[in-house]
């Protein structure tokens, strides 16, 4: 296992669209292990995407236990992830290992259903909400070359949240 080095903005490699994973071999397993170790070593330590370490493949790892304890899915290895459903919107302040020293407000869905494969290629489905859902959406953005900087909103946007909005 090894801690990989993180690309930081404005490195153009962060803006590439990542390719789907089609081969689930030992090389992938090793990479997932390294990526996981790199995530835990980072300042946030709760999520990472392969493009952040200069590997343009659709691989995301999220583990929000450092933040939420056991009240979450724990370690999720999301390969070729897709958002199957989402609902609700919430404003939250985000930072990113690839954008050091800056945080900003971003709107994300409050609840999501994500479908992905695990490191062995098995189909998985997760329902996430709140902080965990935010982490997954943030990391999935990296796969399409987006940073949270592409989704910044002004503080005032928070006003438009309704106390009881209809679904």
């Amino acid at each position: 296992m090894a801690v990989l080095s993180i690309l930081t903005y404005p490195d153009p490699r962060l803006q590439r669209k990542a390719e789907p994973v089609s081969v689930f071999d030992d090389d992938l397993h090793h990479f997932v292990d390294d990526l996981t170790e790199t995530m835990y070593a980072g300042p946030g330590g709760v999520g990472i995407a392969a493009p952040q370490v200069d590997r343009p493949q659709r691989i995301v790892i999220v583990d929000v236990r450092p933040k939420l304890g056991e009240d979450c899915h724990g370690l999720m290895v999301l390969i070729n992830p897709e958002l199957a459903a989402w609902e609700g919107m919430a404003v939250g302040r985000e930072g990113c290992m690839s954008v050091p020293d800056f945080t900003g407000n971003v709107i994300r869905a409050e609840r999501i259903q994500v479908q992905a494969q695990d490191a062995s290629g098995r189909e998985r489905s997760y329902e996430c909400e709140g902080f965990e859902a935010r982490a997954v959406q943030h990391e999935m953005d990296h796969l399409d070359g987006f940073l949270f900087l592409d989704r910044l909103v002004s503080r005032k946007i928070d006003l438009f949240r309704r106390k009881n909005y209809k679904k």
């Binding site: 980072g42 709760v46 999520g47 935010r134």
Partner: peptide, 13 residues
């Protein structure tokens, strides 16, 4: 008036 109080936590991902 309605007053909402929310924590500001910057989550670093």
């Amino acid at each position: 008036v309605e007053i909402g109080v929310h924590p500001i936590e910057a989550a670093v991902f």
